[in-house]
Design a binder for these strands. Structure first.
Lengths: 336, 336
DNA sequence: TTGTATGCGTTATCAT
DNA sequence: ATGATAACGCATACAA
């Protein structure tokens, strides 16, 4: 396509206004300047429709007002909503956002981190999976859901409490025999604590529990088999299931429907994330809701704090339970 | 956070390699240079972990390898998936993507367009709603779903054909009395053609049809009333409903469930977009699927074509029907 | 072929 | 308070 050629520069403005270059710069940057000069310059700016070139600015200032967000994709609604809120939080602070979808590609993750060095961006917010990700000490980085290094702040939901809450809710809702279903990376990360929290909650409430943990490259259908094998006389042995994500919960819901297990009458399901199909609509399933807007704000805040006071290595934000049709409505209205 | 200070520059590399600045530049840009020099420079680059500063590069070249994507948000899965595929298409061409969520804010849309001028980005792909959006002729811009100007290429699905297809499918599936439901901006855009296409299809297939068109600021609940008022003896007068989007279709599905109308037995629903809750999972409803990856590719292709041959003012890409549980399974497997 | 010098648009440090 | 000038890191036209 045609190149953008003739953007007016400060020099043009200076000539138009009949003042020196430096004066224009001052006006643009809000540095006090003689009233009459000010007006002239402003008039010239308006007339030429001048706008600073942020690339020249970035070159000079080593500051680009751009932040890179590394996430696997925006097809998963959790990531998509996260991206949206981070974008919002950045916009509030006049920052732009470079969206870098990594598709779970470990090399691509590293590539993007490298790209961010050399003041191409002012910082990175990353939800990554590369266990060997190299982040030089002078690259401002905030991690989501994974503690990469003590010097890199990590922001996450309180996953342990979330798991615990799920167990408690199932207990409150009358379950006695529950299962925990999980699939995902074996990487050590915060969401892994959901399991421990759930176990803890089950023990506290005297719930019988069973775990079915799959690895990343396993097939979801393994769950089909697992559930089928736990059906006796047409009834599922579990009256409650906690799924590590809403995505999985949604999948399990379909499986149970096929197996003629009634949800929530026979078996209740709680997921994790708080995914909605469309904004302002219902949750996909009863779920432990992650505080996405707060996570976004926290990430941006931590990333942009200039005052290099001590950075918290791990920030856990509170989650809450929300009804979404896959549990009994006992406490439908208790959004927490 | 700490500033990135000491990034090595070409000068550092030149010194390290014992060559001149220009030589380094040439190596970096793949311009032939003496073999021994090449190796020395490459060694120095590796040693210092040097990387070009794209801001200095952009300043010089008036090319930033960055494209801005303007969409309302990434909370709506259609937008989210679109963003993902555009990101992919750009990545293939070594371009970065600035994600600009406009939240349907007309001023913000204009603001972003302005920002893009002055070679801050090499071009813009925009799904916008501002009817008065000013795009200077020298700003590379590709529009999605709306013809802004003859000089600005517009990429969209074949919405007319999609509407027609919806009518045909409903007819094939045995419907005789159908309704078209729509809510959205009254702006003239491509998706509006869904209505005309549907009408056309109904006429061709002798379907009785009713239209219920709401405006942007109307309440969805208006549809509740509309449907309620069309129930006689506990039966809905429509045996088929075509909704302008999957989002609406999903909403209507919930309404009908509340009204005890069985879907798809009593009434079948077809939406538009092809939204899936999670990737690789089922469609939210039976739907007319937009070819999102192709739309993304086309946008990027049109935007980046250097050879300013003639640009097509409007490109319509083919849609197809997909079963998603809200129609009878008559042709479940016909993904067209 | 390789090196040198200039300019891209800004900002900041100087004299004035 | 204002204007001239250097420097940011890179690319390139030009000289060697």
């Amino acid at each position: 396509m045609k190149k953008i050629n003739s953007a007016p520069t400060m020099k043009d403005v200076a000539r138009e206004a009949g003042v020196a270059l430096g004066t224009v710069s001052k006006v643009v940057n809000g540095i006090p300047v003689g009233e009459s000069y000010r007006k002239q310059v402003e008039a010239a700016i308006k007339k030429l429709n001048y706008q600073v070139n942020s690339y020249a600015q970035g070159l000079k200032a080593k500051k680009t007002y751009t932040v890179a967000l590394l996430i696997p994709n925006t097809e998963n609604p959790f990531f998509a909503v996260l991206a949206y809120h981070i974008n919002l939080a950045l916009l509030k602070r006049k920052y732009r956002m470079l969206l870098c979808c990594t598709d779970f590609d470990l090399n691509l993750e590293q590539e993007y981190v490298r790209m961010a060095r050399q003041n191409k961006v002012d910082g990175i917010i990353g939800l990554t999976y590369n266990p060997n990700l190299v982040i030089e000490k002078d690259t401002p980085f905030v991690a989501i859901d994974r503690c990469i290094d003590v010097h890199i702040p990590c922001v996450a939901s309180d996953n342990f409490a979330g798991g615990q809450l799920a167990a408690e809710k199932l207990a409150d809702l009358g379950c006695r025999n529950v299962a925990f279903l999980r699939i995902g990376s074996s990487l050590t990360n915060e969401p892994n604590k959901r399991k421990a929290g759930f176990e803890n909650g089950c023990l506290a409430r005297n719930l019988n529990y069973t775990m079915k943990i799959l690895e990343d490259n396993d097939s979801y259908e393994e769950f089909d088999r697992f559930l089928s094998s736990n059906i006796q006389n047409g009834k599922l042995l579990f009256d409650g299931i906690f799924c590590v994500t809403d995505r999985l919960a949604y999948y399990i819901l379909k499986v149970l429907q096929r197996l003629n297990v009634k949800v929530p009458e026979d078996t209740q399901i709680i997921g994790f994330d708080g995914v909605k199909l469309f904004d302002n609509m219902d949750y996909v399933c009863s779920t432990i809701v992650q505080p996405v807007p707060e996570i976004a704000e926290m990430c941006v805040e931590l990333l942009l704090q200039e005052h290099t006071t001590i950075k918290p290595p791990l920030v856990c934000l509170p989650v809450h339970y929300a009804y979404g049709g896959t549990t009994l409505e006992f406490d439908k209205n208790s959004e927490n």
